[in-house]
Amino acid sequence: MYAKKLVFLFVVLCTMTTANSFAQSQDQAVAQAVEKLRKLMIDPDKAGLEAIASDQLSYGHSSGKIEAKAAFVEALTSGASDFKTIDLTEQTITVVDNTALVRHRLTGETLDKGNAAQVKLAVLLVWVKQKGDWKLLARQAVKVQ
């Protein structure tokens, strides 16, 4: 009887450790996707942007403007939306099944249509795992002080 309890306890501990490791690896994979997106927004690459964005992308700007995938990619690759720097802080990641919610503060320098500006935003990103890769499904930003 004692041996059965000991084996049961061992199995439970192994399961908890495996589940915790899986959750941490999921968080790390999402964090890597966020970092890849940050770099692509500074140095846009059409193929890279198209690969990281879901075909159903809904990209919301702090101005209220909403873009689908094609418009999002075009704005960055054409220079209409031009980030010179992007710093992310206060990032949190919550993974539920194949969906990840990422919140962070974004500060950066832009040069949109030749006009230099500083941005300070609170951002919500929604990522979905599609065919083994994390894809950006939605983004919404709001201006903060």
Rank of each mutant, 00 (worst) to 15 (best):
A141P: 02
F83R: 05
A51V: 01
Q118R: 02
K120A: 11
S58N: 08
D82S: 02
L125G: 07
T89F: 03
E90H: 14
R105W: 09
N115C: 00
V128G: 08
Q130L: 08
S63K: 02
A33C: 08
Q91S: 13
V96M: 10
V96N: 11
K69Q: 08
L9A: 15
N98D: 15
A68E: 14
K39L: 12
C14G: 12
V102F: 03
L37H: 00
K65E: 13
W134R: 06
R105Q: 11
T77D: 02
A3P: 00
E109G: 06
F10D: 05
I93R: 05
Q130R: 09
Q28H: 10
S21V: 07
Q130P: 09
S63P: 06
L13E: 04
V30L: 11
G60P: 05
A51R: 09
K84N: 04
E50C: 01
S62T: 09
T99E: 13
A31N: 07
A23K: 14
A68C: 06
W134F: 02
A141N: 06
S62K: 09
G64L: 12
W127V: 08
D55C: 01
L40Q: 00
L13I: 10
M1L: 10
L37C: 05
M1E: 14
S81L: 09
L40G: 03
A19I: 10
H61R: 10
A141S: 14
K129V: 04
E109K: 12
D82K: 01
K5V: 07
V34F: 12
I52T: 04
A100I: 13
K135Q: 12
K46W: 03
D43N: 14
F8V: 06
V123I: 08
L136N: 01
F10H: 04
G48E: 04
L137V: 03
G60E: 03
T85P: 01
V144I: 15
R38W: 07
D82H: 09
D133I: 11
N20I: 13
S58Q: 14
A47K: 12
A80C: 01
V12L: 15
A33E: 05
R139E: 12
V102T: 06
T17N: 11
S21M: 09
T77R: 07
V102Q: 01
Y59S: 02
L111W: 01
R38I: 10
K69Y: 05
R38D: 02
